[in-house]
Simulated scan of single mutants.
Amino acid sequence: MEARPRKDGLVTYRYHPVGGKPINLGTDRLKAIQRVLDILGQGDGVGTIERLWNQYQDTPDWKRLAEGTRADYKTCSKPLLATFGDVRASDIRASDIARYLRIERQAAPVRANREAALLSNLINLAIERGEAETNPCRQVRRNPEQPRTHAVAVETITTFVQWLMGQTPQRQIIALTAEYAALAGSRKAEFLDIVRPQVDRTAGVIRTKRAKQRGTKRGEVIEEVAITPRLADLLDRIDAIHARQERECLYLFPNRFGNHYTSAGFKAMWSKLMTQALEEKVIEERFTFHDLRAFYATTHKAERGTLPDLHANPAITARVYDRNKVVKRKAL
């Protein structure tokens, strides 16, 4: 390990592997030493799930994950580390994972599946580093998951949106995002950061990048949402709100600082408004923002006879988003 003094008084450290390029270790001497020991397989806690979690966040695999997936994994890491944090990957058995899924996380079976997926990635890293031989996660069946089947009534959505439209301009923006999701069927990740150049009134389309694309396809699939009369009216009302606030904003759905909402920030705001609406008896049932995407797919099929192109796999659109209770067909 090499120490390199800097002009600002700090010292940077880097490790020289035999026959390889130097690895930057930062300016913290103790952390640099610990990292070198980890590389050599001589540090305390080598092969433990907590150490693997810290190492995983420095890998190319982590950098390839979408921002939303990273945030979700960070949430999953908390209960996972509470159980397996100081356990070595090589000591984990399939029975331990099964107990975690069925007993310890019985109250949250779906979240337990996500946590098991993260654990599997960490054990794969341990295998690559020579700290484990097999991945027991592959031997355990995940908890069964059922997609939501409840279809939100149009009256419920309308009432909630109208309630928000009678409040502050910022809450009106939230109402308009709900309308957009119900009319266009887009995910939050596809339109929360939408900017005005993506709205082509001349061509009559809104262009967004399809989310959840993997590998080389990420960012390459462009969705063109046709601007219908109802969607055009929504865009006009967005412009009107921005004009009343006397500000020119690049984003269609800005937060109070003029930036786009983050996924976490929007989720917190939506939950707060939904809870308040229920307490004030504005609506009688809670619904998620993702239910609006299902509302779009269900309404699209009812009005046009076919499901929209929402997913790379049409079977997933039919299984997750189609919530029609009545199936119509013609006799011969």
Rank of each mutant, 00 (worst) to 15 (best):
92 I>V: 08
67 E>I: 02
104 E>M: 07
99 R>T: 14
66 A>M: 00
85 G>Q: 04
113 N>A: 09
117 A>S: 05
111 R>F: 04
97 I>V: 14
86 D>A: 15
37 L>M: 08
50 E>P: 02
96 D>V: 12
94 A>W: 11
56 Y>W: 15
43 G>K: 01
52 L>C: 03
84 F>Q: 05
41 G>V: 13
108 A>R: 07
82 A>Y: 09
89 A>C: 13
54 N>T: 02
101 L>R: 14
103 I>K: 12
45 G>E: 06
38 D>W: 14
58 D>I: 09
62 W>G: 08
118 L>M: 08
44 D>K: 00
94 A>K: 15
81 L>Y: 08
56 Y>E: 01
67 E>V: 01
80 L>S: 11
83 T>D: 04
69 T>P: 02
88 R>A: 12
108 A>P: 03
65 L>V: 03
117 A>Q: 05
68 G>A: 01
56 Y>A: 00
102 R>Q: 15
111 R>W: 03
118 L>D: 04
117 A>G: 02
94 A>Y: 10
40 L>F: 04
53 W>P: 09
55 Q>N: 11
93 R>H: 06
78 K>T: 10
91 D>A: 15
86 D>R: 13
115 E>W: 01
74 K>M: 05
82 A>H: 09
102 R>C: 11
48 T>A: 02
104 E>G: 05
94 A>V: 13
110 V>K: 12
77 S>D: 06
71 A>T: 07
62 W>T: 09
39 I>Y: 11
89 A>N: 09
87 V>S: 14
68 G>L: 00
114 R>K: 15
51 R>D: 05
103 I>P: 10
63 K>Y: 08
54 N>W: 01
54 N>M: 03
79 P>M: 03
54 N>Y: 03
65 L>T: 01
56 Y>F: 11
76 C>A: 14
77 S>R: 06
66 A>P: 01
104 E>V: 11
107 A>P: 09
57 Q>A: 04
116 A>M: 14
47 G>Y: 06
116 A>Y: 08
51 R>E: 07
74 K>L: 06
98 A>H: 10
79 P>C: 03
85 G>L: 05
94 A>P: 14
110 V>P: 09
40 L>H: 10
52 L>T: 04
92 I>P: 03
48 T>I: 05
91 D>R: 12
80 L>Y: 12
68 G>R: 00
103 I>A: 10
37 L>C: 06
71 A>D: 07
110 V>G: 08
79 P>V: 03
49 I>V: 08
73 Y>H: 15
71 A>S: 10
57 Q>V: 01
40 L>E: 12
115 E>Q: 09
109 P>A: 04
114 R>Q: 13
45 G>D: 07
55 Q>Y: 10
43 G>M: 01
100 Y>A: 10
44 D>C: 00
99 R>M: 14
63 K>L: 13
81 L>R: 10
41 G>A: 13
94 A>T: 13
89 A>H: 12
107 A>S: 13
97 I>H: 10
80 L>V: 12
66 A>R: 00
88 R>H: 14
81 L>T: 12
63 K>G: 07
93 R>M: 09
110 V>E: 12
67 E>D: 07
41 G>P: 13
46 V>N: 07
52 L>G: 03
